[in-house]
Design a protein around this nucleic acid. Sequence first.
RNA 1: GGGGGGAUACUCAAGCGGCCAACGAGGACAGACUGUAAAUCUGUUGGUGUACACCUUCGCAGGUUCGAAUCCUGCUCCCCCCA
Length: 429
Amino acid sequence: MNFVKELEWREMLHTSMPGVEEHLKEGMRSAYVGIDPTADSLHIGHLVSVMMLKHFQAAGHRPIALIGGATGMIGDPSGKSKERNLLDEETLRHNQESIKQQLARFLDFDSDAENAAKVVNNFDWMKDFSFLGFIRDVGKHITVNYMMAKDSVKKRLTAEDSEGMSFTEFTYQLVQGYDFLHLFNHEGCTLQMGGSDQWGNITTGTEMIRRIGNGKAFAITCPLITKSDGGKFGKTESGNIWLDADRTSPYVFYQFWMNVSDEDAAKYMRIFTLFSKDEIEELIKKHAEAPHLRALQSALAKDVTIRVHSEEDYNNAVAASNILFGKSTTQDLKKLSERDFLSIFEGVPQSDVDLSVIKDGLGIIELTAEKSDLFSSNGEARRMLKSNAVSLNKEKVDESKVVNSEDLLFGKYLILQKGKKNYYLISVS
RNA sequence: GGGGGGAUACUCAAGCGGCCAACGAGGACAGACUGUAAAUCUGUUGGUGUACACCUUCGCAGGUUCGAAUCCUGCUCCCCCCA
């Protein structure tokens, strides 16, 4: 398999340095991508980089994931990143370990294969670097002129509404560049990959390798993932979509992919799954013939959910979705066994309410806004009710609805909906 | 050190003594239409109350005024130019 060609047809190749393809053909190579360890879980925004590593390994090369313990403290001026907080080392290690676990679902770390994946943390080689040591050994070799020419820097210096740029941020590219040099020297790593916004930072690295390491290294970037409507990829109303099941339930995770627009679905298939070109084209064709069946979204959601979570989680998510999005009614809910009922709503936000509160009747507004956090204020609850957006046990209700024990399913549950897609479970005890 | 500009709700961005809970745009949420899609149309987007109303909000703290996001004083932070 030709790694570069593979990225190309998947439209995951934005820019690459001349000669990369030949370089990779010559034998096994090592490449790395950087990952911010700001949390103990990856989110789906990270997945693109992970997939690049995956393809890289599949092509017989050796992938390295670099946890940016040091760089994460600085903040990359390429993004809109605000000031970063220093993570203490304990947290850092914890995050690193958790992230590695997640990466292991995609990459082969354990086999004896020569190209087994590896995780490194730049904190390990940066923490003991003294300031003087750094400016003497590293800073000396790169001119400010060179650094200023980077888009990420230029933008910050010239923009009219610029908020300026701290020296710390300015040096970011040196620190990241040094990572590359370090990996070049210690791991024989000759390629860095990342999002297209990383191009400038990556080339500082190859430049250092050329000047300090007297070597040749390469860069490949992929396009930043967007949504067809211009929105940010991977964000929902409730925030990031995480890989960690405790942060984002498998059900919500599955739903995220099911909800992708047609236009994006084909694109995401190429990027986030390992389906072949033919298989994807076949699915696109199938989808075009019967769009309402949403072959693309289903295949995408299935593949990614199984890979990130498990077959079982996937099956549960599908079962839940069928009930939740089918034309089911209160009757259908009642027909379920309590066990099935609970497993369906497992991934749905929940809260507990005391039976005494409800027994003698409780207004729907109070229930949704005060006794649970479906809505954040009475006003919001009232507005939503006015616009006919609220359902109780799959039936639309209005402001006058008073909830009492009659409404309980299995004698202890209430299902609330905001709009079509947002479910909320209240357990009464 | 000197001079100039700025800080407004999720973001951008008006307002420059009362008609301001604050124009507009984006975003977000909801409704209709659909295919749990896109596009489109409609509504909502500080809190409490059914509502005329009231309370909290325009960097922070004071002051002037019947009345301030708007004027004054001090403070904090940011940007630009000169040294």
